[in-house]
Design a protein around this nucleic acid. Structure first.
Lengths: 158, 158
DNA sequence: TGAAATTAAATTGTGTACAATCTAATTGTA
DNA sequence: TACAATTAGATTGTACACAATTTAATTTCA
């Protein structure tokens, strides 16, 4: 059984030819699934805050940096204006951010958190501990994952 | 400098309180970025085939399994009918798949690749080698990443 | 057996993502 | 200094992704 199985893997040319496009042999697919599913897990916590995941990471940048231009925001989040413009309009409609044209360069739009936006930070700090429990990776695996993902991001950026 | 820096990290209470919601301390964010950016890298290759990433992974399941129901497809791809129905209609319009109601259970819809859909497999096998070059991870890191992502998927599924 | 519960897809509505294009402001340079 | 090139955002169009709801078929079980 062992030897025939081994033989199969090597000799089965018909199977081997398409191995590289099997779902289970992809690296991209589990990446895509993990991203999607973890964002989905965030939803109940973010619902409490009345924002979506994209809005959440946008607020993270504003909490950390105060005010930033749309283009800087795009660099931080790997998103373009086609995505950010509607997200920022939504956040503005919710009263969490304000947008204003830069005085020095009228092309740029400066975004910053309002008082309500900054206040949301207090609810936000309760999210990671609760998420961590549900991700449930060992410290070593989490660090390894972190390291490799950032390596990958650097490589993709070329 | 070293000691003051160390002291800062420990003593700066104002910063420390919000560390957990800094973008750089997230695990989910690089996951989200990697997924997005890698899918974007696939685009030129998939454009040659005339399909999108979601359509590509759908075809992978069909190439591998022959015919499957929409719900089985959803289990494989972690997608629901709200996403799959329009994707499958598009693939059908392109002549790559056919959909038919199951005879045994009229609720189920069976999807399978057409001849044109199966033929596309020949172009598909050229994609992973070309993508691999652009991802550029060591064999060890790729395997580690694969392992941890699947661990994560298992954990999230609870 | 027949009504209630369950299941499978489809539909609807909201919110991203991103390519491509457009407009307006700024910069570079001949 | 005009004018071409660049840059910043916004807009448009296409394609997911998912929650919630709906419809139709099948199962359960009182």
């Amino acid at each position: 059984m062992d030897s025939t199985e081994k033989k199969d893997i090597v000799s089965d040319g018909a199977e081997g030819r398409y191995d590289c496009i099997k779902l289970e042999n992809q690296l991209c697919f589990p990446l895509y699934v993990c991203s999607k599913e973890i964002v989905r897990r965030y939803k109940p916590f973010l619902d409490e805050m009345g924002i979506t995941y994209t809005q959440y990471i946008t607020m993270m940048v504003l909490w950390e940096r105060g005010s930033v231009t749309v283009s800087r925001l795009g660099e931080c989040l790997y998103l373009d204006s086609g995505t950010l413009t509607p997200v920022l309009k939504t956040l503005e409609a919710k009263g969490l951010v304000v947008r204003k044209r830069s005085a020095e360069d009228e092309r740029s739009v400066i975004v910053e958190a309002t008082e309500a936006g900054m206040a949301l930070r207090e609810q936000a700090v309760t999210v990671p501990p609760r998420m961590g429990a549900c991700v449930n990776l060992s410290q070593e695996d989490a660090m390894e994952l972190y390291r490799i993902l950032h390596l990958l991001i650097d490589n993709i950026g070329k």
